[in-house]
Design a protein around this nucleic acid. Structure first.
Lengths: 98, 98
DNA sequence: TTTATATTTCGCAAAAATACGAAATGAATT
DNA sequence: AATTCATTTCGTATTTTTGCGAAATATAAA
């Protein structure tokens, strides 16, 4: 059997970022964060038609993907774009659409 | 209960395209199609570490998303980028990463 | 110390995605 | 008419995603 070529790290990384963008709630969150630099979970909850616990899950996924980061600011949590990874993602998308 | 704002069509569309890009096999397929304009399923199969039936499913998903299109050229099927939708996707990604 | 606030985790259910091999399809060749 | 070829569809299994409400957590305020 012929050995198939594995996916490259770049392909895997781009797929990961794309997956993170693959839900309208998460697009909505990211748009809000890019426009207002930082937000609290509650501010986002008011604009998105899902339960707070579900929103929390989406935020967690975005955090795991690396696209956002959260800072505790009791009793709230401030979420921001992780600019380092955001730029990496930006470059990867720009490349495939070049 | 406060009526929550629904997702916009743009958000839904971007999420859809992102979801289509959300798997390394599909990234791999799209890269190949953008570089060589058109390909047969068999050509792609040789480069990707998945079964042909699984590849077929990924091609179907990409077709449903609108990013690619297939033309029958017996006994093969020629797949190409759907440039109209590809450009729409490009713009939507460029916008969110702006 | 009790209460209020903001958010997350838990437990669960339903739906969707991923993957495979076997069988089916449809056209061209022998 | 039977065979070959490229590809898809089917049947099935496993895993992941999405969603909710209830309960838990952690801090600040009364």
């Amino acid at each position: 059997m012929l050995k198939k070529i594995e996916y490259t790290e770049q392909q895997k990384k781009l797929a990961l970022y794309a997956k993170a963008l693959g839900h309208p709630a998460r697009i909505s969150i990211l748009e809000k964060l890019t426009l207002s630099s930082c937000c609290y979970s509650g501010d986002i909850a008011e604009e998105i038609p899902i339960a707070r616990s579900t929103l929390s899950q989406h935020l967690k996924e975005l955090k795991i993907s690396g696209l956002i980061q959260g800072e505790i600011e009791p009793p709230k949590i401030k979420y921001c774009i992780n600019h380092k990874n955001w730029n990496t993602a930006k470059k990867l998308f720009a490349e495939i659409f070049k």
